[in-house]
């Protein structure tokens, strides 16, 4: 376990829980959550300023040793995603980018086609591209070829906390992708994060389930423990399961036999 690290775009992560900055009741909870969870990568979004509201600089709440993962949320086309990515990099957020292109405003499903187009462009520009997608193996292979640093398939719709509803499809990605697979979106409980890691996911990204828990700091810690347990179980290789009972001791040598 000591040398069990995740490499993404030349950066080494010793913690496999990625977190998000959305929906916290107060930004001051973010550094506390990061300290409690040990998360080394956190997402942020870019928006037009609201001149009528006094807003804090969210970047000021993220310690320098935590890698920023700006997302392209709000983009409805590859072109918009590319533009947001370039702005984020120019603004000093580094080379990581989570491509999130959503055209379906009812279910908030990622648009895999636009996401692939944006990945092709941004990977060529030297970004470390983490595309957020529906779990589709042929698409994931195309993303790999396009230079994605990882693929980030959803477990369930954004913010739904429903867990690994796409499990069989996630398994195909985990088994067949050369790049790391990060399960993003839908994970609502630490047990679901652990399940993803047991399956062999390389990391999980959790925002809503932590940020909207009654105690986000304690929940961050709980997710960290779950991710570590799930990863350890994956590395230890799970025992077989069977439909029938299998006794743990010999069924011979009983008293009075």
């Amino acid at each position: 376990m000591k040398n069990d690290v995740l490499q993404l775009g030349g950066v080494t992560f010793t913690n496999r829980l990625f977190t998000g900055t959305g929906k916290f009741a107060a930004n001051a909870l973010i550094p506390q959550m990061l300290a409690a969870s040990g998360s080394q990568m956190i997402t942020v979004a870019l928006r037009r300023i609201d001149a009528t509201a006094q807003s804090e600089n969210i970047l000021a709440f993220i310690p320098k040793n935590v890698t920023l993962l700006p997302n392209t949320s709000g983009a409805r086309t590859a072109e918009q995603a590319v533009r947001i990515a370039r702005i984020a990099r120019e603004a000093g957020c580094g080379d990581f980018i989570k491509i999130e292109v959503i055209t379906d405003m009812k279910y908030l499903m990622p648009d895999n086609w636009e996401t692939l187009k944006a990945t092709e462009i941004l990977a060529k520009e030297g970004f470390i591209v983490l595309p957020y997608v529906l779990p589709d193996l042929p698409l994931a292979k195309r993303l790999e070829s396009a230079g994605a640093a990882a693929v980030m398939p959803l477990g369930a719709p954004i913010g739904s906390n429903r867990g690994l509803e796409t499990r069989p499809l996630l398994e195909l990605l985990i088994e067949n992708c050369r790049v790391p697979v990060v399960v993003d979106a839908g994970i609502g409980r630490p047990s679901q994060a652990a399940a993803a890691m047991e399956m062999g996911a390389d990391a999980v990204l959790v925002n809503t389930a932590i940020a909207t828990a009654k105690d986000p700091v304690a929940m961050g810690r709980a997710f960290d423990q779950a991710v570590k347990a799930g990863r350890a179980a994956y590395l230890a290789e799970l025992a077989d399961q069977s439909d029938l009972a299998r006794a743990s001791s010999p069924l011979t040598g009983f008293l009075d036999e």
Partner: peptide
């Protein structure tokens, strides 16, 4: 002009 800032997001 676009005046933008970073905000919370997942």
């Amino acid at each position: 002009l676009e005046l933008l800032s970073f905000v919370g997001g997942g």
